[in-house]
Simulated scan of single mutants.
Amino acid sequence: MSESSWDLFATRHWEQKPGVTAAPGGQGTVDAQRAYAAMVQAARPFRAGTRFRALPDVRFLIDDGRIRAPGELLPGPHDTSPQQYAERLDKELQSPGRLLVVEQPLMLDHVLWGQVRSLVVPLWERVGYPVVPVVTELLLGERITQCRGLATQPLYSTLTWVLHGTVTATPQDSPAQAALTAEPGDVLHWPAGRPHQVRFGPRTLALRLLVPRDPRLLTAAVKDAVAKIVHEQERPGCVPYLPFPPSEAPAPPDVPELARMARLLHETTEGDRLDQALKAAWARRVSAAALEPAPDTRPSVPLKPGDRLRAASPVVRMPLDDGRTWLWAVDGHAFSVRGTLGERVLEQLHQGETPSVQQLSTLAGPGRETSVIALLEKLYTLRGVDVDRRENTV
């Protein structure tokens, strides 16, 4: 999708009306085989039994409903392609209609995650970055209709990239509106608050993004941030048991433990720690294009003086209140940097050349080379820089 096409989509379609348009970058921008491999990897522990509150999450649906413990019906190591997996299920499953849903699979594969991030960043640059993480799903469908319940319709707007097969969305609240069908190379957009059914054609593989819209999701995100701070500073203990009626006349409040926790919550919402936590979360979110949880970082390795570096993932930088400290975020991970040295390092990295670690370390001045090396190793771990090549120098 060209720049002008993105502008047109953001102006005429986004959050306004359902639509089908050519996918940005054309067909193949998202590696279909890589997407399927992520589904197989996510399904591996679920083949042994049901898991609860685990990410990635795996669901297997048929015409009659959901199979809670699909076991061998999930793709395994011998299902080397979506086609082979579909042919196996054609023989083993009585129900012709089926849908495999893997929620948050991108956290397993940084390359796949990066491909999807490249898809959505141009849209976020026009309409704004989501404040709450986007839910990503990979879908393998076979002649089945999925009805997204009325209770969940206001929560998310959806963007569905079709990699194979077809996806057809039919409105449930507007009989006059025709159904929309997306084919390989298309993206289907459906705004929040519009009840609809989704029909998956034969041998369909799709990527679906659920973009949060309901304010309850924002409330839950802030609540989780407050709870994390409280739990970090609260002494370990157990929920108490209290006699009732009390042996002595109770003084308000009747349950002092709850009142103490309420005061702690109030102090947390009024304090600086919550502001800093929310700023760090926002920096991580922008750097991840809201595709969270982000993949794990790379293993930490020492850089050699002759290693030549090139800029990789973009670094999101946000100033903190003290004026001397910055939040840096790369690929969904954040850390703090003091002073202006980091800015000089980034400027050098983005000049189009591949400076060596030794060259960059001189930016700090005599006696401070280790601070630059530590920063570069941190950026390498977070994939902010890549090693271009190694030279045989000390």
Rank of each mutant, 00 (worst) to 15 (best):
R59E: 15
V385S: 01
M107C: 10
L376Q: 09
D331F: 00
P253F: 04
Y380M: 11
E72Q: 13
E72F: 09
E183A: 12
V167H: 04
Y36C: 08
S247R: 15
R368Q: 03
L123G: 13
P96L: 05
L123Y: 11
E125V: 00
G76Y: 07
R203N: 10
E369F: 01
W190N: 01
V102C: 13
G25N: 02
V226W: 07
G193P: 01
Q115Y: 03
V198E: 08
G237R: 00
A86P: 00
V167Q: 00
A288I: 00
L180C: 05
M318P: 06
S81Q: 14
R213I: 01
H164V: 03
R199A: 04
R203W: 04
V58T: 08
V167F: 05
P355A: 01
V222Y: 07
P18S: 01
V230F: 10
P215T: 05
A86M: 13
E343T: 14
S118N: 14
L320T: 06
A281S: 02
V102M: 10
T11L: 11
S95K: 09
G332W: 02
A251R: 15
A192Y: 00
L112A: 11
Q233R: 14
H78A: 15
H78C: 00
T145L: 03
R88E: 08
R338S: 10
H266F: 01
E391L: 08
M261E: 14
E137Y: 13
F46E: 07
S300C: 03
R199N: 04
Q276N: 11
D31F: 11
L349T: 13
V372S: 12
A221T: 08
P246C: 07
D79T: 00
E248V: 12
V316I: 06
Q146W: 11
L242G: 08
V131Q: 14
P355E: 05
L123C: 10
G25R: 00
F60S: 01
Q146R: 12
T393K: 03
E270K: 05
V385R: 02
Q33D: 15
V102R: 11
V387N: 07
G339D: 08
V394T: 09
L346R: 14
V30L: 13
W113F: 10
V132Q: 13
G201I: 03
L291Q: 02
A54K: 11
R284I: 01
D90I: 09
L89G: 02
V162H: 09
D7T: 10
L218A: 15
G201C: 08
K304A: 05
T21C: 04
P45S: 11
S4G: 06
A182H: 03
L375V: 10
